[in-house]
């Protein structure tokens, strides 16, 4: 058996693959945060709650309306995205241009209200979302047993991340978006409806969170606190990647998943803190983050 740092190579491969799967979730969530921060300059603390809403929308749809997983994967982000757009239009818009703190407090407050109401309604034990038939079971890769669903999570998350990156960096709509970030007044003078663009962007970022929520539903318990637990790590990922950097969020998300995966083998006790350790080191040497532009 080949050993790497005293650990069999096969075990290492398995752990790296698992890290990649977790990284895919981080990437998806931090991407949404990065987009929202990039255009709206809002530190969206409601992101975790919206991720939870996405999972619950799928669960409620299945149990009360018979909506299956694949439909929910499309419908739930649309629904939660619409909620996000309403929030942007009626609440966030009022504090646009104010200090970052206002946005942070507003979204944090919203998250507390939403999560509190769900605890009241559904309790904290969480509910179970059944695995879709098509993705039950798994494959023996030789070095580990890989459940099909987890493989699907990586593929789906990466596809969505890359599509989003392409849309923002390589299309006309994306160029409007980026220009709107640089100079909204000028864009408006060119006849672009910037407020609409802002609403749509927030809606899209939120929809990404909801999409991640639906992806997570069959693996993790669908519970009101599922988002709150994840949010802080995801923020650390965004900070490491560089606030507002699209590619930074994706790459860092995956990388942090891998680093966390390795920590779970070598020193599991530190698994929940290693991301913050990396954050501290990165901030010391590159205050704007790995992919951020120095101000």
């Amino acid at each position: 058996m080949t050993l790497l740092f005293g650990i069999p190579l096969s075990v290492m491969l398995g752990q790296l693959l698992l890290g990649l799967i977790n990284g895919a979730f981080y990437a998806l969530l931090s991407l949404g945060l990065a987009i929202i921060f990039g255009l709206l300059r809002i530190i969206n603390f409601a992101h975790g709650a919206l991720y939870m809403l996405g999972a619950f929308a799928a669960w409620l749809g299945l149990n009360y309306l018979g909506v299956n997983y694949w439909v929910a994967l499309l419908l739930s982000p649309l629904l939660v995205g619409a909620v996000g757009m309403a929030v942007e239009r009626h609440l966030l818009r009022r504090i646009a241009g104010e200090d970052h703190l206002y946005g942070l407090l507003l979204t944090f407050g919203l998250a507390l209200i939403v999560e509190g109401s769900f605890v009241k309604l559904f309790g904290v034990s969480g509910a179970s979302y059944p695995m879709p038939e098509l993705l039950k079971g798994g494959h023996n890769l030789g070095f580990m047993f890989l459940p099909s669903y987890r493989a699907w999570v990586v593929v789906a998350a990466l596809l969505v991340c890359i599509a989003t990156w392409y849309m923002i960096e390589r299309t006309r709509l994306g160029s409007y978006l980026r220009a709107g970030t640089e100079n909204p007044k000028l864009m408006q003078a060119f006849g672009i409806n910037v407020p609409l663009l802002v609403t749509l962007t927030y809606g899209y970022g939120v929809a990404l969170a909801a999409f991640a929520g639906v992806l997570a539903a069959p693996i993790y318990p669908v519970s009101p606190t599922m988002g709150a637990n994840l949010l802080i790590v995801v923020f650390a990922v965004v900070v490491i990647g560089g606030m507002g950097s699209i590619m930074g969020a994706i790459v860092t998300g995956l990388a942090m998943g891998l680093i966390e995966g390795l920590t779970k083998v070598f020193y599991p006790q530190a698994a929940s803190t290693v991301v913050f350790l990396v954050m501290v080191i990165v901030l010391l040497f590159r205050p704007a983050g790995l992919f951020g532009k120095e101000a």
Partner: peptide
């Protein structure tokens, strides 16, 4: 020994 609480137990 895993951190309390942990989100992901696959590892």
């Amino acid at each position: 020994r895993h951190p309390f609480p942990s989100n992901d137990f696959s590892s």
